[in-house]
Amino acid sequence: MSKVKYYYDSETLSYKKIERKKRTTLKYAFMFILGSALFGFLFVFIASQYIESPKERALKRELQNAELQFELLNKKMAQAETVLSNIADRDNNIYRVYFEANPIPDEQRKAGFGGVNRYKNLEGFDNSKQIIESNKRLDILQKQIVVQSKSLDEIAKLAEEKEKLLAAIPAIQPVSNEDLTRMASGFGIRSDPFTKVKKMHWGMDFTAPRGTPIYATGDGIVERADNTASGYGNHIRIDHGYGYVSLYAHLYKYNVRKNQKVKRGDIIGFVGSTGRSEAPHCHYEIFKDGERINPINFYYGSLTAEEFNKLLEHASLENQSLD
């Protein structure tokens, strides 16, 4: 029950009941509601500024985690760029130089992407600039990896060819030092053993007892194993590929046949004195692109420096050849 209020009327010298008008009541009610609303709004506003809701806290943690991951991603990209730069440097200045391949220009390695805007869908966000720059770096990095991968595929192919070339080039003596009696004659002008006239001796003569093994000096395919070439007697020719052919003459007998594949160090025949020969020995020649060349430069696979110098000294003597 609401309290009844009175006021003192001085004219009538009596107390009279205070009657509240409806308009006044409505006014007070409106003011109360308005004040409450304003107070509530002010409270909510202040609370929103200083007090986080559980959802806001969760979103804030997610944002902080995203920023951390973004920072880690940029660091990883920087590390990848450094590693890729080192690989590119070795690729250009070591691998491609060794295998005689042209270096890849920096413009090709680090080229961007022209034409249409690839990142339009990333525009309009708070961190658009940062996101676009990171995407650009990632795209360029991926492109550089593709370029480098293709380059390394090429280098692997060149290395395989180089390995085959190194295995094919004649690189050892046809007769081992242990079996040699002496190195009788080298490449150059020598006296003919039959006519005593000086003429060009196109190979090297390795003196050894009859039946001494003769070795293939490089990988290849036996091109000939016969005695139909004038003066050579029983002889073998091996096609090593890459323009190289080796010849072994005056053999006692063969240990291979025509079209047979051989490896460096395989026994292909035995020392003899067939054909135009004065004594048992292996006459050895090397052809490059159809031209005879000095075999002295092709013994790096079996001789020490001292042995090579001694061989070079004997090969340089203008003595008499054995064929």
Rank of each mutant, 00 (worst) to 15 (best):
A58E: 15
L73T: 15
S149K: 15
A58L: 12
D266I: 05
K253C: 08
T181R: 09
I214H: 04
S10D: 14
E163S: 13
L63H: 13
E56I: 07
K120Y: 10
K21H: 10
L122I: 03
I267P: 03
K143R: 15
S2W: 05
I296W: 01
A315M: 10
P103A: 06
Y50G: 03
K162E: 13
V197C: 01
Y252Q: 14
K76N: 13
G188M: 04
A37L: 15
P213T: 05
I132R: 10
D179E: 08
M77A: 04
R61T: 09
Y252D: 15
N135I: 00
Q260L: 01
I18C: 07
D91I: 01
L122C: 02
S230A: 12
R90G: 07
F32Y: 11
A58P: 00
G233T: 06
S246G: 09
K129L: 03
V147A: 03
D323G: 14
Y248A: 03
L68M: 08
G186F: 06
I94G: 00
K310T: 12
I51W: 13
E278N: 10
R182I: 04
Y6I: 05
F39T: 14
M200K: 11
Q320M: 15
V256P: 04
S128C: 01
Y119L: 09
Q108G: 00
A37S: 13
L138I: 05
A216I: 05
P54A: 11
